[in-house]
């Protein structure tokens, strides 16, 4: 099972690469617009260790203006499941999970109810 695959399937494929006239300037501009090519390049001074953060005019650079919404797509913090940051008996953990499943609520909801009951 752990043996590597056959040699034949691990030979690189033959890539046909016919000479293509690319518009290099256009592709470079595209990279810059996408927030790449922020440092270095033929006309730049020697490459620094890290590229400075860049926010392009289109808001596609690094940081707040980025067009991604991964964080925003996550559920709000208060309704995410809770990872109990404590040691507990496995039976207690199992019972908590059971209650959550039975009642269709999150661990956070259950904790909230317990706290309310305690108070």
């Amino acid at each position: 099972m752990n043996e590597p695959m056959s040699r034949a399937s691990l030979r690189p494929p033959s890539i046909k690469r016919e000479p293509i006239e690319e518009d290099d300037a256009k592709l470079t501009e595209l990279a810059k617009n996408n927030g790449f090519a922020a440092s270095g390049g033929p006309s730049s001074p020697p490459e620094p260790n890290r590229a400075p953060p860049v926010i392009s005019p289109q808001g596609q650079g690094q940081g707040q203006g980025q067009a991604l919404s991964l964080r925003e797509r996550r559920p709000p913090k208060e309704i995410r499941s809770v990872a109990f940051n404590c040691k507990m008996k496995p039976s207690v953990k199992a019972r908590l999970d059971e209650i959550c499943v039975e009642r269709g609520i999150s661990q956070a909801d259950l904790l909230e109810e317990l706290v309310a009951q305690y108070e």
Binding site: L27, T28, A31, F36
Partner: peptide, 11 residues
């Protein structure tokens, strides 16, 4: 880093 090198490597 989002630098020239990355863009060139991708290209």
């Amino acid at each position: 880093s989002a630098n020239w090198g990355l863009a060139e490597a991708i290209k």
